[in-house]
Design a protein around this nucleic acid. Structure first.
Lengths: 187, 187
DNA sequence: AGAAAAATGTTTACTTTGTAAACATTAATT
DNA sequence: AATTAATGTTTACAAAGTAAACATTTTTCT
C-alpha cells in the first residue's frame, strides 16, 4: 500500500465531479468516490470536512467553468444568456447544485455566495449598459426578468430532453437560443 | 396494539406532506413518518411501494392544490402567473418536487405527467386567447417564455427570502407580482 | 542528522435509513 | 365457520456518512 498520494483532494473532487456530471449528486457516495480514487473509504475526511463540503467543491468548479466561458463572449448581451443556458444543459446536475439546491446553505460558503452575487450583478450591469436611462427600479425589474427567464428556460429544455415527447418548437428554441432570447427576454 | 387503522395511507401521506412543507423532502424519512402516524416502521409498505411513490403522492397533492386555486382566478392572464409564483413561495419544497426534481422519472407516473402537461397547455391556451393571430411557433415561444419567467422568478424570490441581503426592489416585486408580470413577461 | 510534530492514509466501528421477509391479526369472502 | 386477503408488526439486513483509533510518511526544529 502506498500512503500519501499527490493531490488526493483534487482527485476526489474530480471523481465526484464525473459522477455528478454523468449521473447526479444523489449518485455521488463517498465509498464509491474513494474506490474510484483508489483510497480507503475515509481518506476523504483528511481533506474535506464532510459531504456537504464536497458539494461546495463541485459548485466552485462549476462557477469557475461558467465564469471562464463568460469571458470569451462577444459584446452581444443575449449571448450571455445563451451561454448560461448552454451551461445548464451541458452540466444539468452541477447546475442544480449551483442554482437550484435550496437545502444547501450558501451563506456558509462566502466565496460561493460572492460568485453567485457576482453573476447576478453581471446582469444588472448589462441592463444598465443597454438601457442607460432606466431607473434603479426598472433596471432591477429587467435584470430579475432576464435572470428568471434564463434559469426558467433551462428547466423547460432539460425536461424536454428527457421526455420522449420532443416538441419540434422546443427543439427550435434550443437550437436558436439567441434568436429566441432576442424575441422575448432580451428584446 | 390496535391493528387496522382507518386511512393509514392518507395519514402517512399527510404526515410526510407536513414534514416536507415545514422542512424539505430530504428531511422526510420513513421511520419518522411512521412514528408520527403511530404505526410500525414498515406499515407504510402495505400501502405504497417505496419512498419514491410517497414522493409521487406529495406531488399529486401539490398539483391538486395548485389546480384548485387556478379555478378561482378571474379573467386576468397575469394573475395566473402570480398564482403559480405564490404557490411556489408558499410550498417551496413541494414545488421542488413538482417542477424541479429531474431525478424523478415522471414518465413512470402517467397521471403526474398529464397534470404537468395540462398545466403547460393552460399557458398555451392563455397565449392563444390573448394573441389570437399569433402563429403556432410564436404561441409556443411566448408560452415558453411565460413558463420560464414564472418558474425562474420563484427561484429568485425563494433565494431572497433566505438571504439576509433582502433587496428592497425584490421585495417590491414580491409584493406586486401582477404589476411586475405585466411590466415584463405578460406585457 | 535525528527527534518530535504534523499531515495524510487505513482500519474498525457506529448510526441512520430504506426496505425485504417472516409472522400476527383483523376483515372479507365463500 | 373456514379460508383467504388485507393490513400491521417484528426482525433483519444492506447502503452510506462519518467518528475514532491507529499507521505511515513528510515536515519542522534543534
Amino acid at each position: 500500500m502506498s500512503y500519501h498520494k499527490k493531490n488526493l483532494k483534487e482527485k476526489l473532487v474530480e471523481v465526484a465531479w464525473n459522477i455528478c456530471v454523468a449521473e447526479s449528486w444523489e449518485k455521488v457516495n463517498m465509498r464509491e468516490v474513494a474506490k474510484k480514487a483508489k483510497v480507503s473509504n475515509t481518506a476523504f475526511y483528511r481533506h474535506l470536512k464532510n459531504k456537504t463540503d464536497l458539494k461546495a467543491e463541485l459548485m466552485r468548479k462549476g462557477f469557475k467553468i461558467l465564469n471562464e466561458g463568460m469571458k470569451n463572449i462577444n459584446n452581444n448581451f443575449s449571448s450571455y444568456g445563451a451561454h448560461y443556458i448552454r451551461f445548464g444543459l451541458k452540466y444539468p446536475h452541477i447546475y442544480d447544485l449551483m442554482f437550484g439546491n435550496i437545502d444547501f446553505d450558501i451563506s456558509l460558503y462566502h466565496d460561493l455566495e460572492a460568485l453567485f452575487d457576482e453573476a447576478f450583478d453581471g446582469v444588472i450591469q448589462g441592463v444598465k449598459t443597454f438601457i442607460p436611462d432606466a431607473s434603479d427600479k426598472d433596471v432591477m425589474i429587467k435584470a430579475v426578468n432576464i435572470w428568471a427567464s434564463v434559469h426558467g428556460l433551462v428547466g423547460i429544455l432539460r425536461r424536454s430532453d428527457l421526455q420522449a415527447n420532443k416538441d419540434k418548437r422546443l427543439k427550435w428554441i434550443k437550437n436558436n437560443l439567441e434568436e429566441y432570447l432576442k424575441m422575448t427576454t432580451f428584446k
